[in-house]
Design a protein around this nucleic acid. Sequence first.
RNA 1: GGGCCGUUAGCUCAGAUGGUAGAGCAGCAGACUCUUAAUCUGCGGGUCGAAGGUUCGAUCCCUUCACGGCUCACCA
Length: 487
Amino acid sequence: MGTHERDIRLNKLNTIREQGINPYKERFQKSHSLYQAKKLPLNTSGVRIAGRIMAVRIFGRLIFATLKDFSGKMQIALQEKAVGKERFAFFKKYIDIGDFFGAEGTIFKTKMGEITLDTSGYELLSKTLRPLPEKFHGLSDRELLYRQRYLDLIMNDGTIERFLKRTRIMKTMRDYLDAEGFFEVETPVLQTNPSGANATPFTTHHNALDLDLYLRIAPETYLKRCIAGGFDKVYEFARSFRNEGLDPSHLQDFTILEYYVAYWNYEDNMRFTEKLIKHVLEQVNGSLKLTFGEKVIDFGKDWKKVSLRDLIFTDTGIDFSTYTNENDLRKAIKEEGIEIQDLSTMGFGSLIDNLYKKVSRPKIDDPLFITHHPIELSPLARRNDINGRVTDRFQLVVNGWEIVNAYSELVDPVDQRNRLEEQASLHRKGDSEAMVMDEDFLTAMEHGMPPISGWGMGVDRFVCLLTNQENLRDVVLFPLMKPTDQQ
RNA sequence: GGGCCGUUAGCUCAGAUGGUAGAGCAGCAGACUCUUAAUCUGCGGGUCGAAGGUUCGAUCCCUUCACGGCUCACCA
């Protein structure tokens, strides 16, 4: 659907070309960023700056325009007497808001006190064919923000800041892990056997090998193979994919940070988690108190630890450790008047999980470690030595969100085989989220793994928390959108 | 997947008990050497998300569909 505006600009483009001017320049030699240029002393001459034109104000023989680059914004002034009649007229006729523009001139201060470049010469660097969104209100249509993120980045100042913060958060974690002796590794995204989590994978096909493949749902089992191979501290920022529903707190393409440490248990890991996250808060936000919406979340105190059994007992009076079968537990949940959908079809582990999500999790604001999840929910976690029905596992919950999930890893190949067989049987019965048998992983474990503690973080959620965002799509540059009919 | 809501000019938004629509910004033409949401004068711009139905007549009412948002359920 050609717009009138676009046709006008196409005409301008052609006219510019007919004058022998290339409207898409190869390069422009800048002397300063806009941020730097604004700090130069008055009367500095020969200053060369470039950026996108964000606004133009024309006063007869004087033009003010606002340039924007990655470092900031700066005003330039064009006087007819300084650039010459022809160049001045060219600007008025052919330069539009949105165009990329290079200017050379002298720093001065306007009567209103603004540091401005008095332009002596300029170049059109790149001609735009479409107009920018409205300058005052910017772009606010949520759909367009996601579909045309570049416009959001140009128009809304907070947006680029948010994504820079995402990068800073990831870099801070990376630097911390590196300093602690971790090695960053890369493991396969295309897998023959999706494992490491309970989730439905995306499927694809390798033509040359005539082989069905899956996009990874987690990097877990490959990172453990690294430990088996002799690494003792590894991590990966793992883009992972789950073929499930999407909502503000779930994307099908998301980033997990996982690390694995040989010879640690989950308690070592909890201590490290607290140090790591406090470090990130201090480095990135400069404070251990975090404002999220109306709440202030305090990371500064020692983080509390509570077992899942104690947490649910405190909130409901139900002690799941005293129940030996799911029917009795189901009855108790009904007697407490707690409403859970599909109650009748759930197994023991799911009942506990749903009870927790319904009753306990929403109440949690400040960081809380929840430990010792039932074995049914944790097919890859180490069985507790004293109570074999629970695992040596913890989750870190903040603001009602699970930020971290970690445990002492199961390294007993016999126990692991039994538990994967249980999962595989659930999978055969139609639970597409249950794990499938992974002989290759079991073989690796049979060759021997040291004691290991592993850890996984939903990076996008953590970034949401630190940037005060409710929707994961607001911390992902280009979230998946269904295509629309376009012409 | 269910429920609720939305989709009007490039953008931000009005609006008509049903008689095919307006503003601001952006654009075009003009005035203007200190503005920064510049100002002033004039002009152009819309298959009102798509299809079907009801109606003399639909952008408005009804149905279906598409896309999106929020929310409930499941997954981090």
